[in-house]
């Protein structure tokens, strides 16, 4: 049971980081970057390739993270900004980000080939035995990084002027710009953070999955499902969605069948969309109201 929970949380943190990458971009620009999964794949394959060329692991990881961050910004300038400039309210970014995702995937398939590339095992080789469960140091690091990502985001958002200006841009970019907010700079920053988070997820999951050019699809879809479960409006909620998806997928694998995690997320997201269309952690949704009603009934009953 504890093993299922901890493994689920670890996998969920990876989904959550990808979902956060989606959500940070959406938070500022109201655009869903469908190439987010490919940024995860880029960081894995680049690390694998650079280490194979003889670079130390840490240098390969550093360069891969920089590359996924920069690629995030390039996606903004190539696939998003031109279409928003043409029509700010159009959904053309939907096609353009999907298009660039295919281009990135095809490019990496040509460079690295379709076969799986070995990824440095690093901290994944070191087990940590707990009462009732075993994790690796890499998995513990994943949990810590996920927690730090959410805490860092919320601290900046709530406690700094930069974060509050980001909130203002998120709710009303036009008026925020009349008070000095450079909306374009914030959009670039959001795509950079999105690229970094997706790249980070790749580095953390790489020792388990190894690298192939089609990993982006798998993790992009899982991250997007996590986003739908948690709620697209808040990056921290997206991480919550990732954790729910991760724990329930691993539980389904353990208690229903080995392949259950292939279909279970889709059932889960359907249920969430029915009960809480804005996400489990979005404010004002029906699931939250249901819990509130139940707790108020309990309090009323006691009184």
């Amino acid at each position: 049971m504890l093993q299922v929970l901890l493994s689920g949380l670890t996998v969920g943190t990876i989904y959550g980081l990808v979902a956060m990458a989606f959500a940070v971009v959406f938070y500022v620009t109201k655009v869903v970057n469908f190439a987010t999964g490919q940024l995860l794949m880029v960081s894995i394959l680049l690390t694998a390739g650079l280490v194979r060329l003889g670079l130390p692991d840490w240098l390969g990881v550093g360069i891969a993270l920089i590359a996924s961050t920069v690629l995030g910004v390039i996606i903004y300038f190539v696939a998003v900004r031109p279409v928003l400039k043409f029509d700010r309210f159009s959904f053309a970014w939907l096609v353009s980000t999907l298009g660039i995702a295919i281009v990135i995937q095809a490019t990496f398939a040509i460079i690295f080939g379709p076969a799986s590339q070995p990824f440095p095992r690093g901290l994944h080789q070191i087990p940590v035995h707990l009462p009732g469960a075993t994790l690796t140091v890499q998995e513990i690091l994943t949990l810590v990084v996920g927690a730090l990502a959410v805490l860092g985001w919320e601290l900046v958002r709530r406690k700094t002027l930069v974060g509050k200006l980001g909130m203002a841009i998120s709710t009303d970019p036009e008026i925020a710009s009349t008070f000095g907010a450079n909306v374009t700079a914030y959009a670039v920053g959001a795509f950079a953070i999105g690229g970094f988070l997706a790249g980070l997820a790749g580095i953390l999951v790489g020792p388990i999955t190894y690298g192939n050019p089609y990993l982006g699809d798998t993790y992009g879809i899982s991250g997007f499902i996590a986003l739908m479960i948690g709620g697209i409006q808040r990056p921290a909620a997206a991480m919550g969605g990732g954790l729910i998806l991760g724990v329930l997928s691993i539980a389904a694998n353990s208690y229903i069948g080995a392949q259950a995690s292939d279909w279970f997320p889709f059932v889960l997201v359907l249920l969430v969309l029915l009960l809480a269309p804005n996400g489990v952690f979005a404010s004002g949704d029906s699931l939250r109201k249901l819990f509130r009603r139940r707790s108020s009934l309990t309090v009323g009953g006691r009184a």
Binding site: L165, M167, A168, T171, D172, I175, A176, S177, F179, G180
Partner: peptide, 29 residues
């Protein structure tokens, strides 16, 4: 954002205060 550097500021129609932020945060922004 360039014009806002001390040249002009506006009270928009419908006020359009920054949602989810306190009165003081709106002022400081």
């Amino acid at each position: 954002h360039q014009i806002s550097r001390g040249l002009a500021a506006m009270v928009p129609e419908g006020r359009r205060l920054f949602v989810g932020q306190s009165v003081e945060d709106n002022l400081r922004l």
